Amino acid sequence: MNYNKRFFGMLALAFISFMGLAQLSTPPGGGSQRSYVKQHIGGVGSVAIEYSSPGARGRTIYGGIVPYGFNNLGFGLSTTDNPSPWRAGADQNTTFNFSHDVKIEGQDLPAGKYGFFVAPEEEGSWTVIFSKDNNHWGSFFYQEENDALRVEVEPEDAGFHEWLTYEFIDRQPTSTTVALIWGDKKLPIKIELANPVKAHMEQLTAELNNQQGFSFQNFTAAAGYASSVGEHEKAIEWADAAINAPFVGQKNWATMSTKGAILAAAGKAEESAQVMDEAIKLPGATAGAIHQYGRQLIAAGQKDKALEIFKYNHKTNNGAWPTNYGLARGYSAVGDYKQALKYMKLAKENIPAGDNVNGPIIDQNIEKLKNGEDIN
Rank of each mutant, 00 (worst) to 15 (best):
Y36A: 01
G55Q: 15
T79F: 10
G74L: 11
F98L: 05
G74I: 09
P83K: 00
K5H: 12
E105G: 14
I104K: 01
V66R: 15
G64Y: 10
F75W: 09
A56V: 15
V37P: 03
A90Y: 05
N4H: 10
S17Y: 07
H40Q: 14
Q33A: 05
V44F: 02
G63L: 13
G58V: 04
P110W: 05
S17A: 12
F18P: 00
I65E: 12
D91A: 12
Y36P: 00
V37E: 04
P27C: 05
V102H: 03
P110H: 10
S53N: 11
T80Q: 11
K5L: 13
P110C: 09
R6T: 08
S25A: 11
G55E: 12
P83V: 00
A90S: 12
Y3A: 00
S25E: 10
G31E: 06
F75P: 01
I104A: 00
N2H: 01
N4F: 09
M19I: 07
Q107A: 12
T80L: 12
S46W: 07
G45D: 01
S52H: 15
D81E: 12
A12S: 06
G30D: 01
G76C: 09
T26A: 15
S17D: 14
H100D: 10
M10I: 07
I65A: 10
T60P: 14
S99C: 14
R34F: 12
G42E: 02
P54R: 06
I61T: 13
T95H: 02
S99W: 11
T94R: 08
A111Q: 08
H100C: 04
L73F: 09
T79M: 10
H100V: 04
G45Q: 01
L11A: 05
I65C: 13
R34Q: 11
S99N: 11
V102M: 03
W86V: 04
G45K: 01
R87A: 08
P110F: 06
F7I: 08
H40F: 06
F70K: 14
A111R: 11
F18E: 01
I41G: 00
G74F: 09
S32E: 10
G74P: 13
G106T: 13
I49F: 14
V66L: 15
P83H: 01
P28K: 04
N97S: 13
S52C: 15
I61Q: 14
H40D: 13
L24E: 07
Y3I: 00
Y51G: 11
A90H: 04
S32P: 06
R6L: 07
I65G: 07
A12D: 03
G69E: 06
G42F: 02
F75H: 08
L24D: 02
G31I: 04
P67S: 14
